[in-house]
Amino acid sequence: MKAFITVIGRDKVGIIAAVSNLLAERGVNIEDISQTIMQGMFTMIMACDISDAASFSELKEALNGLGGRLGVEISVRHADIFNAMHRV
């Protein structure tokens, strides 16, 4: 199952490391990663395969919790919502 993880917030040391670590612990494979600074905000998008993650809701909660600790907003969404919206 493909998902996109987005991280938006103030840039600081260790965001990618922390997110990648959390994903690795849950068997989530990062297939693509891009990051940029948009309007002064750190913005990262990760394309992931979450088929081996135990549960989507647990992954989501863990990412939310990490976001809270890092002071950034982390969300994970099934890829279908992006495909539905942007591809005919």
Partner: peptide, 12 residues
Amino acid sequence: MINGIEILETVK
């Protein structure tokens, strides 16, 4: 492949 701009548009 969905691009970053499209992903961020949806998130916004």
